[in-house]
Design a protein around this nucleic acid. Structure first.
Lengths: 337, 337
DNA sequence: CTGAAAGCGCTTACAG
DNA sequence: CTGAAAGCGCTTACAG
């Protein structure tokens, strides 16, 4: 039923190995032969069996993308960039939502390995036990991490300068005159968030303006998480005049919580996000936030992965960092006295 | 370097075919043998080569998901539902963003076919030429479409009752007292949108209230598309008091355009969406919209796909339709006189 | 430049 | 219940 190399071989009167070479554009093939093979392949509607190809070559043209959750708009953008780059290179992308669950993450990784993927893009290896991480390194399949590099790790990374982003945010709010600031961040495991918090803290504490950002509240990095964290914050720390949410989605929840209390943004409380999602410019008030690469991160990560995959043996890990920029919109202003 | 069935066979003193049967839990294996094989497999860290398995079995445990764009939150939800269902069944999901581009769609389909996927989930087959569609049917791989069934098509579908959704929206706005309504919809090819517009029109025209919804403006089904369409509408049809956007994302853009004109929602103009995205309850004003299944659509589509894949030969197509429900929030009210 | 053969790592009738 | 063998559809040294 399905058409194989052998069918082309018979139809064009050459050996199957010659057909293979012609199709793969290998050296040492007479151009007439190649032309004939290509023509009959097209004529009889040949479609290569990628499974057989992968088995023979020892590697498939597939990439794995393991992220927390595709529903987080940040990852959605990253995924789109990754998929576009993969498609452009003739690879396809397997989507894996780990929910940052160690068990799922591990299962995904082994599943990808078993498929002999050409490379793996991952959110983070936090959650993978040391033994799984070693296993992963043993398999000698290129891995690019999408979070900040950890010292001693052998994995490459493509990421954003989140520390700088946090620093910009902190500097901006302090300049606006805020003295009592709060940070809403995600769970501890997400080192990314920690970096932006560190940057923010540094800006606030080193400003010499007497501003303080003692309040750090942790919640899920979702709009619901932001909402809950903000409610807690408003109840316990009424003097806070500016809130830095660790990402825009959390900021959306923060704004909702503030309005529910009968307060307004930015009149009563300033709110800043991080990520600059498309929607952040659309909601009201338009959100002041930190612009960072998302699509480009996914794209660059795939390109790096493919480059690593091209190389013979394991190489030194590479680290790519994208810059950030503050996007001033309407959700922040000086505190009212 | 990699561990194969043969290694297990040697290590446990049985033939490779016995190892295969033990691992696959086939009938007619002595339980002691199985136990021993399983134990040594685990001990030496065996990982099956899915490529070889797929080749031998003639099918891989992979599913393809071809959608317009993962960045559209509607598809994001569908994709997550699909991925969860696939993961639960031990399959993985290849993500394909077609942008509704005929060429890309075609390339994706063939790419999936070449990988011998167990099934394909697709946005729509519009864009595929008749010959590609026939080709697809020939391959005998189950396909589930995520849009309304077309008569004469042999593909199964899992979808939402968008006509009813449009009807609910129209009925609601007319009851509120609106006489001059507008619809903002997407490009013509997206039959889904057409159905919801038809339902809306029917409700308005059959209301007996003298309401009219003549204005239909087409734009991209993105927030930008909604923004542009609304600007045009506001300029040319100042009497319109209610706008039905074909999806929530467009509605976000509509609201932005209205505020930019110095008007307010719902004070001056009511706005309704369709989809009930998570963000629709978070923005201000919270959006009145039509709730429809998204995650569940993806999930059900994968389950149907897997069911079809289980069956021997081609079956009659199945059609699953999810119901809808109006979610009343704050973006609509009676028109001011 | 091309053919013949072995091999990639599994599965699955076929014997026994 | 288990072994031996053929086969899935390619690729790739090895000869010539």
């Amino acid at each position: 039923m399905t058409i194989t190399l052998d069918d082309i071989a018979k139809a064009s009167g050459v050996h199957v190995s010659t057909v293979s070479r012609a199709l793969n554009n290998a050296y040492g093939i007479h151009s007439d032969t190649r032309a004939k093979v290509l023509a009959t392949a097209k004529e009889i509607g040949y479609r290569p069996n990628r499974l057989a190809q992968g088995l023979a070559r020892g590697r498939s043209r597939t990439l794995g993308l393991v992220i927390t959750d595709i529903r987080n708009p940040y990852w959605t953008e990253v995924a789109r960039g990754a998929e576009d780059a993969a498609f452009a290179a003739g690879y396809d992308l397997v989507l894996c939502n780990s929910d940052l669950d160690a068990g799922k993450q591990t299962r995904y990784v082994y599943s990808l390995l078993e498929k002999r993927v050409a490379g793996i893009l991952m959110n983070a290896v936090t959650g993978l036990t040391r033994s799984v991480q070693e296993d992963l390194a043993q398999w000698n399949v290129p891995v690019v991490l999408l979070n900040a590099p950890r010292k001693g790790s052998s994995f490459s990374t493509v990421t954003t300068d989140t520390f700088e982003g946090g620093f910009l945010a902190g500097t901006y709010l302090v300049r606006l005159g805020h003295k009592s600031l709060a940070v809403l961040t995600g769970r501890v495991e997400r080192s990314n968030l920690t970096d932006r918090v560190k940057g923010f803290m540094k800006a606030v504490n080193s400003s010499g303006e007497g501003a303080v950002a003692t309040v750090v509240i942790r919640g899920a990095h979702t709009s619901e998480g932001g909402y809950e964290a903000a409610k807690k914050l408003l109840a316990n720390h009424p003097k806070v005049t500016a809130i830095f949410a660790a990402n825009d989605v959390m900021a959306f929840g923060v704004i909702r919580a503030i309005y529910e209390q009968g307060l307004k943004v930015p009149e009563n409380i300033s709110v800043m996000g991080f990520d600059n999602l498309e929607l952040s410019g659309i909601i009201r008030p338009p959100l002041t936030t930190i612009q960072c690469a998302k699509y480009e991160v996914g794209q660059a990560a795939v390109e790096l992965l493919l480059k690593l995959a091209q190389q013979k043996d394991a190489q030194l890990p590479e680290h790519l960092v994208f810059g950030v920029r503050l996007v001033e919109r309407e959700s922040c202003r000086p505190p009212c006295k």
